[in-house]
Simulated scan of single mutants.
Amino acid sequence: MADIDLADLDAFTAVARQRSFRGAAVTRGVSASTLSEAVRRLEARLGVRLLNRTTRSVTTTEAGARLLDRLTPALGEVQAALDVVNSFRDSPTGTLRLNVPGIVARVVMPPIVESFLKSHPGITMEVVSDDSFIDVLAAGFDAGVRYDERLEQDMIAVPIGPRVQRFATAAAPSYLASRGRPQHPRDLLNHACIRHRFPSRVIPNWEFERNGEIVRITPAGPLIATSIELEISAAVAGLGIVSSFEDYLAPQLTSGVLVPVLKDWWQSFSGPFLYYASRRHMPAPLRAFVDFIKTRNG
């Protein structure tokens, strides 16, 4: 057992948590074949199968499940021990893995990443844009950014980015000239609306709010897409009314190729939060990032 590589153990835990070689490869920044070879090497040295592999899924065997249960805290302690040494550096080193929604990756993160990396040259950031609802810690990320502060009891939330954002609704002037301008959210039921589908396949209702009154509608229209770029392009072409984050639509609203629709009904919501697990030994790159965000918040 003495020749078992710690990296192989880490590869196994990554695949077992993700239940996917491909998914683990994304979080680790390596190829799926590299992880597969590491797990095969570990299984050969232990003389027992740890993972059941099919073309559609990866699951742990009983032996693999028990090993994962024991390895998770042990590898955490190893990382904590290494971070004790890391704390003696003038600037911490290592990789910080973050999982963030698309809107955060586009609007919130760019100035933060630029400033943080300039002040922490020893840290590599891995930022994965993901609009699905996953357990980011179980998926191997150090922290996540989400729009809901209601977190598990052992999680800590720190405000990041703008504290108030809005959903905006807009259309091309040509569309409004031909179809008329809606005066109430329910008027949208008689309009062509361009809708968004999340990776979970959920197509959200459109929600509006004014003077405490909330109106939710299920619009219809010629296009349903998972790409906000495609949705905006279709709206600019006059195919219908689009609804999304105001930040996404800001360039088109500023240029005038799209104009606001029902602006006095645009709904405001709380800005995003960085969240991470409450633990005694926080990885040095994460600690540096949390301190950085808190300093920016003033």
Rank of each mutant, 00 (worst) to 15 (best):
I103S: 12
I103Q: 07
I103L: 06
I103V: 15
V104T: 10
V104C: 11
V104R: 07
A105Y: 03
A105N: 12
R106M: 13
R106D: 14
R106H: 09
R106A: 12
V107C: 09
V107E: 06
V107F: 03
V108S: 00
M109W: 13
M109V: 13
P110K: 00
P110G: 08
P111Q: 05
P111F: 13
P111N: 02
P111G: 08
P111M: 11
I112N: 08
I112L: 15
I112G: 01
I112C: 00
V113S: 11
V113N: 03
E114R: 14
S115V: 11
L117P: 09
L117Q: 10
K118I: 04
K118D: 11
K118C: 05
S119N: 06
H120C: 08
H120L: 02
H120R: 12
H120P: 04
P121K: 00
P121V: 10
P121F: 02
P121G: 09
G122H: 04
G122Q: 06
I123L: 02
I123R: 08
M125K: 04
M125I: 09
M125T: 01
E126G: 07
E126A: 15
V127A: 06
V128A: 04
V128N: 05
S129Q: 12
D130K: 11
D130N: 15
S132A: 13
S132M: 07
S132H: 06
S132C: 00
S132L: 01
F133V: 14
I134V: 15
D135R: 10
L137S: 08
A138C: 04
A139Q: 10
A139L: 14
A139M: 13
G140M: 03
F141A: 03
F141L: 05
D142V: 12
G144Y: 05
G144V: 07
V145L: 08
V145Q: 01
Y147R: 04
Y147N: 07
Y147S: 13
Y147V: 00
D148Q: 10
E149I: 13
E149T: 10
E149K: 14
E149W: 10
E149A: 15
R150M: 09
R150N: 12
L151H: 05
L151S: 01
L151F: 03
E152F: 01
Q153M: 14
Q153D: 15
M155T: 00
M155A: 03
M155S: 11
I156L: 15
V158G: 03
V158W: 02
P159S: 10
I160R: 03
I160Q: 01
I160C: 08
G161E: 00
G161P: 11
G161Q: 06
R163P: 09
V164F: 06
V164Y: 10
V164M: 13
V164C: 05
Q165W: 01
F167H: 09
A168I: 02
A168W: 02
A168T: 00
A168Y: 09
A168G: 13
